[in-house]
Amino acid sequence: MNHPATPAFDPSRWRKSSASGSDGGCVEVNDSITGVVGLRDSKLGETSPVARFDRDQWATWQDEIRRHRLDGENGAVSVTEHSAGWDVRVSATGEILRFTGFEVECFQQGVNAGEFD
């Protein structure tokens, strides 16, 4: 049985929060696929695992971030907070994205500013 290929995100459409510096490490978001939002780690670039959210999951996750309640209601990722930052587990694959505290702070600022709505 053949399954359709998972659409690829447009590589030119990965973006980060305006609060992120130019040091290379950041949370990147891509919405180039209709109805889907991707999240990856810029430190890993093309080799980064990508968390895929449908629009409802993405809205729920942003709400979790704004409320500072990372309880996994979104269904796409679960987050473990620790002193060094976040481990974001992709529910569909089990892969882990690791973000530093600075990367998390910049991403949260972007979410709170509506940069990823």
Rank of each mutant, 00 (worst) to 15 (best):
R89P: 01
A113H: 10
L44G: 02
P4Y: 06
I33C: 12
E73S: 14
V104I: 07
T60Y: 00
N30C: 14
V50M: 03
D10K: 13
G94T: 09
D56K: 11
S18D: 04
W61K: 08
V27D: 00
V36P: 09
S32D: 03
S91L: 00
E103C: 07
D87R: 03
R13E: 13
G25R: 11
V88Y: 00
S32K: 05
C106G: 01
K43F: 01
L44T: 06
L97V: 11
L70M: 10
D87K: 11
N30K: 12
S17T: 09
R15L: 15
E28R: 04
E103W: 03
T100N: 04
G94Q: 10
E28Y: 05
Q57D: 08
Q109K: 13
V104R: 10
T100G: 09
E73V: 12
S78C: 01
G114F: 03
N74E: 02
I65W: 07
A113L: 12
S91P: 11
Q62V: 01
T6P: 11
T60W: 04
Q62E: 11
A59M: 03
M1E: 07
S83E: 15
C106V: 08
S32M: 02
V29S: 11
G45L: 14
D56I: 09
F102Y: 09
V79P: 03
W86S: 02
D117K: 06
F53L: 03
A76S: 13
D63N: 08
E64C: 08
V37I: 14
Q108D: 06
T60R: 06
E73R: 15
E103I: 07
S91V: 10
F9D: 00
G21I: 02
S32Y: 10
P7D: 10
P7W: 11
T47C: 06
Q109I: 03
E105K: 08
S20Q: 02
E105G: 05
R67G: 10
R89F: 00
D54P: 07
F99Y: 02
R69K: 09
D10R: 15
V77S: 10
G75L: 00
S12H: 04
H3R: 14
N74H: 02
P11H: 07
A113C: 14
A76F: 00
D56W: 13
G35E: 15
N112G: 15
A59P: 08
S78K: 12
G85P: 07
N112F: 12
I33M: 13
G35R: 08
T34V: 12
V27W: 12
D87F: 11
R98I: 13
H82W: 04
R13N: 14
V29L: 09
S78P: 11
G24P: 14
D54L: 15
L39E: 01
Q109N: 03
Q57P: 00
W86L: 03
F107H: 01
D56E: 07
R69I: 09
V50R: 05
D23S: 15
R55S: 15
Q62S: 04
E28I: 12
F9T: 03
L97F: 04
W14P: 03
V36R: 08
H82C: 06
R98N: 15
